[in-house]
Design a protein around this nucleic acid. Structure first.
Lengths: 228, 228
DNA sequence: TCACAACACTAAGAAAATCTTAAGAAATGC
DNA sequence: GCATTTCTTAAGATTTTCTTAGTGTTGTGA
């Protein structure tokens, strides 16, 4: 498997290269978006790791350009300070993202995960942007949520929370986990921000918020969306 | 979970130790990089907190050295005056960093966050969150317990006890052992807290609590879940 | 074998922890 | 600057946990 690593910081490219080579992957390097596109045309590449901030052509523009031609799995690298929404929310074609500084183990896990997904799809992209459980449906492409066919409006934060829980329906997330995943930072004093949002979501998606059908609490643990 | 705290300032090591012990972690101490590396070879360490400025071997060199051998989550401690970019930007293998003086709550949040990340990633490849014996089934991901297909509701403590016993079905646990594992503290004030919980669990999972099928007592020793 | 000591079980209620809700302040976006 | 969204606060509701104290059961050794 050949992996293209693209970052203007040579030290980072080298470090990532070493981790991945240890796992048995072949590494190809590029130091800006223009180079990356050239490399992809010339080599057979199975996965791309791309930095956001780069001279000449930034990672987002490069990703969009690459997506015009093919669907090679692509993981974005970004600094924590950069705008989360821009990376996750804006759908510009990346499959996953990792924030710097990153845990090498996490990088490897995500790379494997992407390669697995790609090969089981046979390389043909059939990315379904629809999540569903019971009568609850989330179309991530149009950012639309419907309950029993009825469209409901959620605010951005509410949307992210519900999407996280629905994408992993059945799995329980602690409040800390939810905070971390949605806000992209460790919460050390979350008061009850999350539970207020939970309340608001329930108000909108549940027939009877007192006896939620979808968004359930697991006492002493956290919240989950029921898998139906 | 065992956490290695490494700093040349004993007062800081002790302070961090106290905060983390309160959260139920076991602490191992080291006072310079060389010691840290030795400790890691000898003990099972799940997370490292490392100061940057230290005699003998500084935190960055130590981190790089550690990274040659393994991927234990590592949080860097650094004074505000030190070059921030050097720590954040330079990728030498740390997973997160905290600046001194730090907020204890923040420290704990980041520690938990790292441990969570590490364990969920580790389980990514072969996660089987389901424990089973006879008709009793525990799905740890959704925190759901079913008996003969029927879902039963357990409280957090009850859940933890049953999970402990089921994960080690057949093994007998003394009351002290159960207390220690579930409450995460050795200090044992006998009373009969555990047996009350056992009673409640039986009430919920057993057809006839007087003649338990799953959760059995072993006279003079403790309790076990039958391996079926 | 019988009594007694050690151990296990049960029930109930007070205390503690956790979740829910509402309302308003602060921040954000147009 | 207005409308919307997000966060904070605090009180109320609910659930869980712990403790107590009494009852039952088992094993032992006189």
């Amino acid at each position: 498997m050949n992996i293209l690593v693209c970052d203007d910081d040579k030290a980072i490219v080298d470090a990532i290269g070493i981790y991945l080579e240890n796992e048995g992957y072949k590494i190809v390097k590029a130091f800006n978006g223009v180079e990356a596109i050239e490399v992809i045309r010339e080599h057979e590449i199975h996965l791309i790791i791309m930095d956001i901030m780069m001279p000449k052509m930034d990672g987002i523009r490069a990703t969009m350009k690459i997506r015009e031609e093919n669907n090679i799995p692509l993981i974005i690298l970004s600094a924590k300070s950069e705008d989360y929404d821009k990376i996750l929310g804006l759908n510009f074609g990346a499959d996953d993202y990792i924030t710097k500084p990153f845990n090498p183990l996490e990088l490897i896990a995500r790379v494997k995960s992407q390669l697995r997904r790609y090969t089981t799809l046979g390389g043909l992209e059939t990315r379904s942007s629809i999540l569903q459980t019971g009568g609850l449906m989330i179309d991530d492409e149009s950012k639309t949520i419907t309950v029993d066919g009825e469209e409901v409006h959620l605010t951005p934060v509410q949307y992210k929370i519900l999407k996280l829980l629905t994408a992993n329906a059945g799995k329980v997330f602690s409040i800390e986990e939810i905070y971390e995943k949605v806000w992209n930072e460790a919460a050390f004093n979350p008061e009850n921000t999350v539970s207020v949002h939970i309340r608001k979501i329930r108000e909108k998606i549940e027939i009877n918020p007192k006896e939620p059908k979808y968004l359930k609490v697991v006492w002493g643990v956290g919240y989950k969306v029921e898998k139906i």
